[in-house]
């Protein structure tokens, strides 16, 4: 509950992100007949047995808990697709854009509530864990590039959970770098580059002035 106990530390807690991710649309196969639901976020249904329909994840989980539907595992949550993604992640320095923004949360929700609907659940789970590890390692190596006058760092296709984990750290690190690299403390920006180069550089300059 990082976000709730300490508002300065992080904007969201993992639970809050999970709540946000519950608005993602998934496909379900209902086994009941029901009128369409007219909700503020949109109209869902009508529901007929064995006819695939699209609903938000929270509704899918609620129906699943009551045994009224089975959730169709999303396209990206298959062993072939995830193996592909994992290989792509390992091969390149860039983060791949093939997973949804909330992939960590969606996969956890589905594993908790609809484990029986996911084919090869065990394999899928370990693949997602591997992908997450690889991606997080990339984030870390990107963050190592921070130095004196960094104003921003560009990391593409970061997912919600990943960015939430590093957010408090990045904020503080950038603040600290900003403070220590302020022009008051270090007057000449050219000299920041390398302290050792200072000496050979300053000697010829004085020469010219004579």
């Amino acid at each position: 509950m990082a976000g709730q106990s300490n508002p300065n530390l992080s904007l969201f807690s993992a639970e809050e992100l999970e709540f946000v991710a519950e608005d993602e649309i998934v496909e379900i196969i209902p086994n009941l007949r029901m009128e369409p639901l007219n909700l503020i976020c949109g109209d869902f249904g009508p529901f007929f047995p064995q006819i695939v329909t699209q609903v938000p994840l929270w509704l899918a989980v609620a129906l699943k808990k009551r045994g009224k539907c089975s959730i169709r595992s999303p396209e990206w949550m298959s062993v072939e697709k995830l193996t592909q993604v994992l290989e792509a992640e390992r091969d390149s320095q860039e983060m791949s854009d093939q997973l949804p923004f909330h992939y960590v949360e969606i996969s956890r929700l589905l594993f908790d509530h609809a484990r029986d609907d996911i084919p090869d659940a065990y394999m899928v789970r370990s693949l997602i864990e591997d992908i997450r590890d690889v991606r997080f390692h990339k984030v870390e190596s990107d963050l190592e590039a921070f130095s004196g006058r960094t104003v921003a760092v560009k990391i593409k296709n970061l997912s919600a959970m990943e960015v939430n984990i590093v957010r408090p750290f990045i904020g503080r690190a950038l603040q600290a770098f900003f403070k220590h690299d302020s022009p008051e403390l270090i007057p000449d920006p050219e000299r920041v580059a390398d302290r050792r180069q200072q000496v050979p550089n300053s000697a010829p300059r004085r020469h010219l002035r004579r």
């Binding site: 530390l9 807690s13 590093v166 957010r167 503080r172």
Partner: peptide, 8 residues
């Protein structure tokens, strides 16, 4: 900050 967000 880093440890607690990771732990959470």
């Amino acid at each position: 900050a880093a440890q607690s967000s990771m732990a959470a």
